[in-house]
Nucleic acid binder design. Structure first.
Lengths: 342, 342
DNA sequence: CTGAAAGCGCTTACAG
DNA sequence: CTGAAAGCGCTTACAG
């Protein structure tokens, strides 16, 4: 493998000049630059990133912590991040970490604390203070996309507002018996994504003077997946008395599961049951699901842009440093919701 | 950030000894080792991987090239790989690359050819000879999981056999009018996964003395996704004459799309239409889909084990160096297939 | 605009 | 079993 010394020799300059010519940092005569670049191209020289980071302290590598790869939202975000990072010349090191625990500690203490990443992006993870501190102590930016991260910059939709929007859509249709398929753990973790959606639902119901309707007090927790939604909806809808006429599901995948459960139970949709979700899943259109869309791929791109700014990669583009505007959402009405049966 | 010199000073030894004590390579008195480790722990020392790779040439990092993150099979594989790599102490650098093109060239020539990864895993990608050569020229192992990779070790299920198994299941049920929803590009790329599945189908039909049935000659290409399967199945099933009584779909997601299309067209399942897929998707059970299961998470783990062997990370465990046994599959019969209507 | 020198933080022969 | 020295491949002040 050719090293920079080989390029220098071939171009008849010093290694210092070769380095400057190739990196574009510092003054080099136009003619010299061309000669160096030609030499580098000729022998297929590629700088060793390890050697470079050793002296610059920059690795051109970002660590991404994400609890799932195989859920629609997370997969989309990851793709968006990957694409944006790649085109900024950065590598993405993936840490697929579910809940807190020894494994996650190990990643933060050992993998992320090393000098191998310039910044950390946490997607949909509820970070502990200690985790944030481990990274910031190393003077590395850490950005949360969704989830929670005490003391770190955070990008997210307004989950509470999204939930209210979905709920109010059902209320406007005249539903009074509305249940919520909440994310698992939403009761315990009020500030988590699931918790915020649950609060948004409860607030809107409350404001309308209504209590959640159906089995288990009208709020059933479900794993945020299609099978999770299916199982929870069977409990909710299979109960003899007291069936709700509408369901607000914490995510589209949960909503799909609920649709499947309704089908299984012979409940006609939407005439006997309306369902609304959150996400804008790629299958939502096909299944006619009304949902509050968000745009995870774009969110990933925006998050990368923010990180690049934190890393000083972009000259100040006038964008405010602290932009706490929530990310974009939009209610898309389809055939899964209709007016309440009378 | 503490460096190895700090540890050495604190322990009262040289940097060389500190290095040996921490890495476990070379002789160090038991007592010395303990002192060094205590010192390292006390100041929270973590070795700089960049500095280490500069001299060892090893990065403890594997590059993974994968065309999708958000398709079930690929997401599962990626999770499996990530977990296995992490527990082997390796990082995973993700390259989410779809079809060949300038972007992919850039990744191979620039990102992967640098000294930043020790090995490359390509999941479900059809690699060009040049791509394989770029990596092997740098003396790095490259392993293909699915897809094709001229001249590189490869792990895969027997796609042709899996397709035959699915097809023969339908034949045994008495179906004679069978169509295939093939993967996009399966006609052009005979050695690709989609191509092999298509061949397996055609061979089994041929052996049974049957021709594919239905619109477009009984073989319709579909994007390997639920919406892709839906669109293709509408073409196949919506055609007035000549409807098949059974469909072999190139993947479970395509099969789900076909089920949805049948539902939309009012075709009763399975009495009027049987459907079988390939994958063992997490939703297959819920939707009662008969399928030839494969185990992508486990495949990822197996692939990592193989790569570790290629990297000399594991002492010879007696496993053969060249094991071309296909990966495991299994036919799981559910309610989506039944005997042919008469 | 260019070059010689130092140094980033490690590991590895080589002596002892 | 341990240490001094060299060196991995770069970049960055510092002179000139």
């Amino acid at each position: 493998m050719p090293a920079i010394g080989d390029v220098a020799r071939l171009a008849g300059v010093s290694k210092a000049t070769a380095s400057r010519a190739l990196s574009g940092r510092g003054y080099v005569a136009e003619d010299t630059r061309r000669r160096v670049q030609a030499a580098a191209a000729r022998i297929g020289y590629i700088a060793s990133p390890d050697a470079a980071s050793l002296v610059t302290g920059r690795t051109k590598n970002v660590g991404v912590v994400i609890p799932f790869v195989n859920r629609w939202f997370f997969g989309e975000v990851l793709e968006g991040i990957e694409r944006a990072l790649l085109s900024a010349g950065y590598d993405l090191t993936l840490y697929n970490l579910a809940q807190a625990g020894p494994e996650r500690d190990r990643v933060f203490d050992f993998f992320l604390a090393r000098k191998r990443v310039d910044a950390v992006m946490a997607v949909g993870v509820d970070l502990t203070e200690r985790e944030v501190e481990v990274i910031t102590r190393r003077a590395k930016p850490i950005l949360a996309l969704g989830g929670t991260a005490p003391g770190a910059p955070r990008l997210a939709i307004d989950d509470r507002a999204a939930a209210s929007l979905a709920t109010e859509h059902l209320l406007k249709l005249g539903h009074t018996r509305i249940a919520h398929l909440a994310g698992a753990g939403s009761g315990a973790a009020a500030r988590s994504v699931q918790g915020l959606r649950r609060s948004g639902f409860l607030e809107s119901m409350d404001a309308a003077g209504l209590a959640p309707a159906g089995n288990s007090g009208g709020v059933v927790e479900a794993e945020m997946s299609l099978p999770g939604g299916y199982a929870a909806a069977l409990q909710l809808l299979g109960h003899p008395g007291d069936r709700p006429t509408a369901i607000f599901a914490a995510s589209d995948e949960v909503a799909f599961g609920a649709m499947r459960a309704a089908e299984r139970l012979g409940i006609a949709m939407p005439s006997q049951l309306s369902i609304v979700g959150i996400d804008g899943h790629e299958y939502a259109e096909l299944f006619g699901l009304t949902t509050v869309e968000q745009y995870p791929g774009e969110q990933g791109r925006i998050a990368v842009a923010r990180v690049m700014r934190l890393l000083g990669e972009v000259s100040d583009d006038g964008a405010p440093e602290h932009d706490d505007t929530p990310l974009k959402t939009r209610l898309v009405v389809r055939s899964s919701t209709t007016s309440a049966p009378r």
